[in-house]
Amino acid sequence: MKKAFVFLATGFEETEAIGTVDVLRRGGIEAVTVSITGAKQVSGAHGVDVVADVLFTEADFSEADVLILPGGMPGSNNLNAFEPLKELLLEQYRKEKAIAAICAAPLVFGGLGLLKNRKATCYPSFEPKLIGATITDEAVVADGNVITGKGPGLVFDFALAIVAHLKGEAVAEEVAAGLLL
């Protein structure tokens, strides 16, 4: 079974995190939520508390097929400030495995140099943080092993792009149909 890790920091965008997890699980992907805060309960940007499956320090990322960053503020900045996550993203990228970020969270990839010579999208006004990227206005951009999404209203497009990347277009279309998309 394909395995995805969705990272939760204080101030994460709830729709992007939970919506992505839901769509991935519908697609037969094991989606694990990971708190980087040191506590399993993490507060979202709009006051929704979520209990993560594991703490970052407890997780085994060796079988990760994709690492996913939901956006939101200050969640994206909190993800960006967490050095162990950035090291993990660099390792995943070097192995040519998938990484995905939506909304403001692609700023983490930009700061790590992971968007150089790649097309990417993000929430409007965060484009300057996507260092080295060719910015598009598309809802979702999949460029090789890097997937970026524009924002919360496009979470289904984002999550389905991840499903398509890991399991193929047919599975993504089946999940979309089940969601009436």
Rank of each mutant, 00 (worst) to 15 (best):
G132D: 12
L130R: 08
K97G: 05
A52H: 09
G11F: 10
I131F: 07
L69H: 02
S43H: 08
T134K: 14
V23H: 02
T10K: 15
A31W: 04
G27A: 12
E173S: 14
V146Y: 03
V140T: 14
G75C: 08
L180S: 13
Y123E: 03
T148H: 09
G71D: 05
A81W: 11
L179Q: 13
A164S: 15
P84W: 14
L130T: 06
T121D: 02
I135E: 05
A64H: 00
K40I: 13
A45H: 02
D143N: 06
V141M: 02
L154A: 13
H46W: 10
V23A: 07
F82M: 07
Y93A: 12
I147F: 07
V54N: 03
A159C: 08
F109I: 09
I102W: 05
K95Y: 02
A120L: 06
A4M: 07
C122S: 15
I147C: 05
G44K: 06
I147M: 06
G27E: 09
F158G: 04
K167S: 14
A105R: 06
V141Y: 06
G110P: 02
S43F: 07
G113L: 10
G168V: 11
A52C: 11
C103G: 02
G28V: 11
G71F: 04
E173I: 14
R26G: 00
S125V: 15
V32W: 00
L160S: 00
F61W: 02
L114W: 01
L112V: 11
V66C: 03
R25G: 03
L115H: 02
A101Q: 08
K3A: 03
K3V: 06
D157G: 05
L154D: 04
V23D: 03
V32P: 00
K95W: 00
A17W: 10
A17C: 13
C122I: 05
G28M: 12
